[in-house]
């Protein structure tokens, strides 16, 4: 027998050991590490590609006729000019392929002609002239609304990225540890359940931050978000990520069937996405369905993020959405820690 008796374990020490071990395990498991970020990058590239193909590729440069109230027209014309967009204050050439009607802090863009132009730069210019994104409507001559696919879907892409990290990257490995008997072994150490669960978070949280950072960089680069909006978006990302982790821990708290949890983890983001109001326009959904969907925490995240990324209006104030997300995170995390079992035979 060796001579070093165990001293009183320090929570910080156990947390550090567990966190470091989790990071190394995740690094060793290349396939797992790849899969938790794959869904995010795949969707992001898909949306970027689609947006380019639908709204940008091979389209002519815009030639714009601006109409409406002078108070709105003047700054817009200046902005368009500074951005190199050919614009006039009246239809004098007959060569224009887009019109912008500015009125009462609203702007309506109509794409005209056989060959509609690139219109996203127009929206950027209108926003830069002081009209909020939510007050800008773009349509073609037949009245068909034009959508900036990247901007509209960034909240959903961020949500998918976070959920993949939380569910596939956290819940599934946790259940695998239980299935393999590792949790049973760790359960015989003095480590507390809450410490163990919390220690799963740091390395995954870092992955979540990669997603958040990338979405933020894109938002800034594309001019989707202001400085104030970025601060608010960061808070939404932090709260959302923590909330998804809490749900992942709850999902992983008892099962020892990693395959089942893997299937559930693959389905949850898709269901949550369709229920968030970011895929189907809210206008087409019946009121009772909207009320039901608004009860879902995933909707709270998507709507809070959508406020800053997509200029959508949430069903309640963003700060209330934050409060609800925080409350749910705390409640679910505590519940997960309470019902967590090292081994399903401990029930």
């Amino acid at each position: 027998m060796t001579t070093s008796r165990a001293t009183t374990p320090r929570v910080r020490s156990a947390f550090y050991e567990l966190s470091a071990s989790n990071a190394r395990e995740l690094y060793r498991n290349k396939k797992g590490s790849f899969s938790i970020l794959f869904m995010f990058f795949f969707l992001l590239l898909l949306i970027v590609g689609l947006n380019f193909a639908v709204n940008d590729g091979n389209r002519p440069e815009p030639i714009v006729a601006v109409t409406g109230a002078a108070a709105g027209m003047t700054p817009l014309l200046v902005t368009l000019d500074s951005r190199g967009v050919e614009a006039t204050s009246a239809r004098i050439t007959g060569e224009e392929n887009a019109t912008i009607n500015v009125n009462d802090n609203h702007a309506a863009v109509v794409l005209t002609g056989q060959d509609p132009p690139r219109w996203i730069p127009l929206v950027e210019a209108i926003e830069a002239s002081g009209i909020p994104y939510a007050n800008i409507a773009v349509q073609d001559e037949s009245g068909f609304a034009q959508v900036d696919l990247l901007r509209a879907n960034l909240p959903a892409v961020a949500a998918i990225g976070f959920m993949a990290i939380a569910f596939m990257g956290t819940a599934v490995p946790l259940v695998s540890l239980r299935q393999r008997g590792t949790l049973r072994l760790l359960g015989t150490t003095p480590v507390k359940k809450l410490t163990f669960i919390a220690a799963q978070t740091p390395v995954r949280f870092a992955s979540g931050m990669v997603v958040a950072l990338l979405v933020s960089v894109i938002s800034i680069a594309m001019g989707y978000v202001s400085v104030v909006g970025l601060a608010r978006l960061t808070a939404t990302f932090l709260l959302g990520l923590l909330m998804f982790f809490a749900f992942a821990y709850l999902l992983a708290s008892r099962s020892r069937n990693a395959e089942l949890i893997n299937h559930i983890s693959a389905v949850i983001p898709v269901l949550a996405l369709f229920a968030s109001g970011e895929v189907f326009p809210k206008q087409i959904l019946p009121e009772p369905v909207l009320v039901a969907l608004n009860v879902l925490p995933t909707t709270w995240f998507a709507q809070a993020a959508g406020t800053d990324l997509s200029g959508t209006t949430p069903f309640i104030d963003v700060y209330l959405l934050w409060a609800m997300m925080l409350a749910v995170t705390i409640g679910v995390a505590l519940l997960a820690a309470r019902i967590f079992v090292w081994d399903d035979r401990d029930r």
Binding site: S4, A6, T8, S13, A14, E17, T189, P190
Partner: peptide, 9 residues
């Protein structure tokens, strides 16, 4: 790692 979880230095 396991020894550390048990509280050893």
């Amino acid at each position: 790692y396991l020894a550390r979880l048990h509280g050893l230095s």
